[in-house]
Amino acid sequence: MKLLVCISKAPDTTAKISFSADNKEFNSAGVQYILNPYDEWYSLVRALELVEAQGGTVTVVNVGPAENDTLIRKALAIGANDAVRIDAQPLSAMFVAKQIAAYAKEQNFDAIFCGKETIDYNGAEVGPMLAEYLDLPFLSFANHLEFDGGKAKVSRDIGDGTEVVEVEMPFVLSAAKDLAEQRIPNMMGIMKAKQKPLQVVAPVDFQDKVKVTTYELPPAKTAVKLIDPENMDELVRLLHEEAKVI
């Protein structure tokens, strides 16, 4: 079984978000970067579990600059067999999907795993775009996955419930919470990761179709209005008359 796991980089969940003075650029100074949690905790770990149980390899792929190698090595330390970095700044979801599709087309992966979304742009777009480029089925928000012969059984979150579906390989899926349990890399994994292959490939040409023109922080919250805990009638009155939400 040959699996591909798409991993992205995102600002740490506690990172303070700020922008350049003209609001055109994200200010990355001092921001700690992590592997996107959906990719690291769920997608990668489930892929590893399946390969450990049934044999095969897990390749991780990232579209990004050389500075991402540290994070890619972390994915190798968690257990991926090898890594590919497509050497380009990921400026839009379609750009990323196009790059990964160009690489994966030649490789005959049995399944390609993405995360549910990246926690920076919250697009959930790369997975379905990749599936479309490769003309494969796409299963979003998988919270349970089993392989059985050439078939996969996937439970997916559909917002107001879950559905269980079956699909033949190959396919693309996106991983949501509960697909697996987070794994912390151990010393042995970290040592081994240094020796594992990390291939750098050149990007294919692609013109971005969307562009962020401005960023904006939400308006500062006005100070909280404290209500006497004895007087919940007052809270209800304010929610009705002032906030107009009930």
């Binding site: 379609m94 959930a124 790369v126 990749l130 599936a131 479309e132 480029y133 796409f138 979003s140 917002g159």
Partner: peptide
């Protein structure tokens, strides 16, 4: 922007050669 809507957006953008915004 529902679970299924999210699965469609990216596919359609590629199919239609369109720019897309999710959410």
């Amino acid at each position: 922007q529902t679970a299924n809507g999210k699965a469609l957006l990216g596919r359609l953008a590629v199919r239609l050669d369109a720019g897309s915004v999710s959410g």
